[in-house]
């Protein structure tokens, strides 16, 4: 996958670039609207990560530019403004998703993966990882050829893990992914533990292999 990161905040841009590069994504980045327009005119990307607030204009301009040039890259908007109007405007201009700052890199990765899947894997609904196979339309999971039953949250969590395979995902990131910011994190950590225990057990029974590794109380790693 080839990704263009358009973000003016250097610290954030570097973190995103590093995270995605390590996950095997080909990344390019720029920090302003002019650069973004020239890059998208010259090259073809699979996905674009677009910050709305740029020093030389609003990210919406790029969306209009892409639309005018008949480009259909998947676009994920990131914005510091949790505004319904902005979200609707962005989606109407052809963006695929909208993420509000601050966010976890794992969440960003999962969202980008989802956009990428929707854009380029229309024909197949299967997501395969090692012995695990997920039917994205039927919400069914097969491990080592055996169909396993996951709850809604466990299924969400599994997809989240697969998107961030090989990375340590913090409990905070998991909690926010599953419950949003509507509940206190401290309360939700117990459930994460319970859910993970269940997923582990169900996959272990089928694959005889442990995919999830706990990391020092900070989070989990899916291998």
């Amino acid at each position: 996958m080839k990704l263009l990161i358009i973000e003016d905040e250097q610290g954030l841009r570097e973190s995103i670039e590093k995270y995605f590069t390590e996950a095997g994504v080909l990344c390019e980045s720029c920090s302003n609207l002019a650069g973004a327009i020239s890059k998208t005119s010259m090259y073809q990307y699979d996905c674009i990560l677009l910050d709305i607030g740029l020093p030389d204009g609003e990210g919406f301009t790029l969306l209009e530019h892409l639309k005018a040039n008949g480009k259909n890259e998947g676009v994920l908007i990131i914005s510091a403004r949790n505004s319904l109007d902005n979200k609707i405007k962005g989606l109407n201009l052809g963006a695929d998703d909208y993420l509000i700052k601050p966010f976890h890199l794992a969440e960003l990765k999962a969202r980008i993966d989802a956009i990428y899947r929707r854009k380029y894997f229309n024909t197949t609904n299967l997501l395969n990882y090692d012995l695990i196979s997920v039917d994205l339309l039927g919400h069914e999971v097969t491990v080592n050829g055996i169909n396993i039953l996951l709850t809604r949250k466990e299924y969400d969590m599994l997809l989240y893990f697969i998107a961030n395979k090989g990375k340590v995902i913090s409990k905070n990131a998991i909690a926010e992914h599953l419950w949003g910011d509507e509940i206190d994190l401290v309360d939700s950590f117990d459930f994460i533990y319970t859910h993970i225990k269940n997923i582990r057990k169900k996959i272990m029974e089928a694959a005889h292999k442990d995919y999830i590794k706990a990391v020092y109380g900070v989070g989990y790693k899916f291998l």
């Binding site: 610290g11 510091a80 990375k167 900070v218």
Partner: peptide, 22 residues
């Protein structure tokens, strides 16, 4: 919000370091 986003992303990057201790 943007600085908080930077902190969060740096933390997410930091915990990937395998040399960190408990």
């Amino acid at each position: 919000l943007t600085p908080i986003a930077v902190i969060t992303s740096k933390l997410d990057t930091l915990i990937q370091d395998e040399k960190l201790k408990a």
